[in-house]
Amino acid sequence: MAAAARPSLSEAPVAPPARGRDLFLPLALLGVLGALVRAIWFTPVELMQGPAQKIFYVHVPAATVGLYVGLPIVAVCSAMYLWLRDERLDRVAESAAEVSLVFLTAVLVTGPLWGKPVWGTWWTWDARLTLTLFLWFVVLGYLIMRGALEDRGQRARFSAVLGLLAVLLVPFIHLSVNLFRTLHPKAIVLKPSAPSLPPEMLSTLGIAFAATVVLFFALLRARVRYAADRELLSRRLEGEG
């Protein structure tokens, strides 16, 4: 029996461009600004680490969102793309990868700024830091590869496989502080027992985390819309050519 024919990628739906001013993104940025204001002026200074500990309120949410929200979206959309061959899933995976790269960059910049005053060094080649840097390069490679491949189907398939492989690093990064000797502290919030933080610091972290999650989805939405418009433009130009 002949297999049911899948629609070709050129027939995959592209939504018409959404019009109107997008207020979600500016509001999400304001939310992050509000969380920073709370961290700076309304959260106590930690006695041992000093004001540098406040980097915690941007470093941890960026890491949590990049590793545990963004990259799983890349993996799920990549797996579903390989199954359904729906180009919209490829666009969401691509967009989530790019937005996750921004958050991973935030992690890799704020980490050394916290490490220098607290550990006495900007960087150390331990498992957590090295694996995170490696993941950053893998996601960057994913985006560079997408730019290098012209055939839509090939680009989407190769990207989906690389996206699935990239996310395999996430559990290793999470467990690296338990599996290896490292300067990086163990989890103080995402752990089986209660969080080891005073309530006022925990509430600031919660607000910063919520604001970062909202920002992630605002950026993802804007990036997916851009990808859809770009696709539509590309098809129109191909049609004209």
């Binding site: 993104l25 600004l33 920073l36 004001p51 540098a52 980097i55 960026a62 960059t105 605002a218």
Partner: peptide, 26 residues
């Protein structure tokens, strides 16, 4: 507490530039 506020100020500035810069780029 130690006087190391410059590090967190730098980190917050980087975060602001990175997030707002990427939003503007998009």
């Amino acid at each position: 507490p130690p006087d190391n506020g410059v590090y967190f100020q730098a980190a917050y500035a980087v975060i602001g530039v990175l997030y707002a810069g990427y939003a503007l780029l998009l």
